[in-house]
Amino acid sequence: MSKSEVYGFQEMSKTFKELGGDFNTTAERVVTLTTNKAMAVAKDNTPRGQYPDTVEFTTKDGKRVSFKVTQKVGGNLIRSWHTGNLKKTKRKISKEFSNAAEYAMYVNNGHRIVRKGVTIGYVNPQYFLEKGLTVAEQAMDKLFQVEVERLKKKHGL
């Protein structure tokens, strides 16, 4: 789970009032846009399972079996993304986004592959959550700047 948050209400609120804007409304809009942008980037970087169209295996009696199946493309991890409600306190505004799939953190952070108690491999991390957060941090400043510029332009400053 991750959050987009805005701190420093007093200073920013004062600036917005001087410019004739409502800081709380702007902060809510910026936090929501930032969270949505972060989640979109996280979803774009979430891997999609690709399954083969042929199944092959050896039976107990040693016979090799192979047959075609309808090719399946995964998507449970992507469908499991969701955002929470906007939360406001006196000091901050936040909105969470998370992935409800119980294996999401293992795909994001990487994990060992263990068979019969022995580590036989490692799945590399995808870091889709971190990629979303990086974009969110960069976007939030830009979105506030756009809002300040809009207010300045509106009031001829």
Score class of each variant (00 low, 15 high):
111 H>T: 06
99 N>I: 05
31 V>H: 04
28 E>V: 04
125 P>E: 03
18 E>V: 11
114 V>Q: 05
82 H>E: 15
27 A>H: 11
75 G>L: 01
144 F>S: 04
154 K>H: 06
21 G>A: 08
109 N>E: 15
107 V>E: 02
102 E>L: 04
100 A>H: 02
65 V>L: 00
98 S>Q: 11
62 G>H: 03
157 L>N: 08
102 E>S: 09
3 K>W: 11
108 N>S: 05
9 F>T: 13
75 G>K: 02
113 I>C: 05
7 Y>H: 15
44 D>E: 14
44 D>L: 11
91 R>K: 13
58 T>V: 14
85 N>I: 14
8 G>S: 11
81 W>P: 01
133 L>M: 13
120 I>A: 01
89 T>Q: 07
57 F>W: 06
4 S>D: 05
12 M>N: 07
11 E>H: 07
94 S>E: 12
3 K>F: 14
121 G>R: 05
113 I>T: 08
153 K>Y: 06
63 K>G: 01
30 V>I: 02
10 Q>T: 15
3 K>V: 11
86 L>F: 04
29 R>A: 14
153 K>R: 10
143 L>G: 03
156 G>K: 00
68 K>A: 14
153 K>P: 04
33 L>C: 03
66 S>E: 15
101 A>S: 12
150 R>G: 10
15 T>W: 00
20 G>P: 01
131 K>P: 08
72 K>L: 12
15 T>Y: 03
64 R>K: 15
9 F>L: 08
124 N>S: 14
51 Y>N: 03
156 G>P: 07
123 V>K: 10
123 V>L: 11
75 G>F: 03
99 N>Q: 07
122 Y>N: 10
51 Y>G: 03
151 L>W: 00
86 L>S: 01
97 F>H: 11
64 R>G: 08
57 F>E: 03
66 S>A: 15
14 K>Q: 11
10 Q>V: 15
141 D>H: 14
81 W>Y: 13
26 T>R: 06
148 V>W: 00
135 V>L: 04
146 V>R: 11
119 T>N: 01
6 V>P: 08
86 L>R: 05
44 D>H: 08
10 Q>N: 15
119 T>F: 07
90 K>Y: 02
150 R>N: 13
96 E>K: 12
110 G>R: 10
6 V>N: 10
76 N>Y: 07
73 V>E: 08
107 V>C: 11
98 S>G: 12
81 W>I: 03
12 M>S: 09
21 G>Y: 03
95 K>M: 15
140 M>V: 09
77 L>P: 11
93 I>P: 00
149 E>P: 02
67 F>I: 04
59 T>S: 13
127 Y>L: 10
137 E>N: 14
40 A>E: 12
157 L>F: 09
15 T>K: 12
49 G>E: 05
16 F>A: 01
87 K>W: 00
23 F>R: 00
114 V>S: 01
106 Y>L: 12
81 W>A: 07
117 G>H: 00
79 R>K: 15
75 G>C: 02
58 T>F: 06
126 Q>E: 13
